[in-house]
């Protein structure tokens, strides 16, 4: 998982202080894609953000108004509300590299 062992922690937390993550994962019902997204996100959170994250999983089928409030277009969408900048990761979260990049846990490859 860590291609560059010296890097990630130093990079993602220059101050060394743990930044709190506020995450919302919007899924549309229990589909294989939703399940995959939930699995990937919770795994990342456990591994990389242990103790400093707040993850809320929302089923937009049951709470369509929340989809509206959260400006959700695609599903699944993971919204990183904090730390800023706000970012939306769309898709099944299977591409871990991009997911980490979106969470500012790793520099973008591109």
């Amino acid at each position: 998982m860590h291609d560059n062992p010296s890097d990630p922690d130093d990079w993602q937390a220059p101050s060394g202080a743990a930044r709190n993550y506020v995450l919302k994962l919007y899924v549309s019902g229990i589909t294989p894609r939703s399940e995959e997204a939930i699995r990937c996100v919770t795994a990342i959170c456990r591994e990389r953000l242990a103790g400093r994250y707040d993850l809320e999983i929302i089923d937009i089928y049951r709470h369509p108004a929340l989809a509206r409030d959260g400006q959700i277009v695609a599903a699944p969408t993971l919204v990183k509300q904090l730390p800023l900048p706000l970012r939306r990761m769309i898709g099944s979260m299977a591409n871990e590299e991009r997911l980490l990049a979106g969470l500012d846990l790793r520099p973008r490859a591109d």
Binding site: Y26, A67, V73, R88, I90
Partner: peptide, 16 residues
């Protein structure tokens, strides 16, 4: 704001 991380659909839009 958007980062694509895999397959997705526009169910959010449909639902709204």
């Amino acid at each position: 704001e958007i980062e694509e991380t895999g397959e997705y659909d526009l169910e959010g839009l449909f639902l709204r």
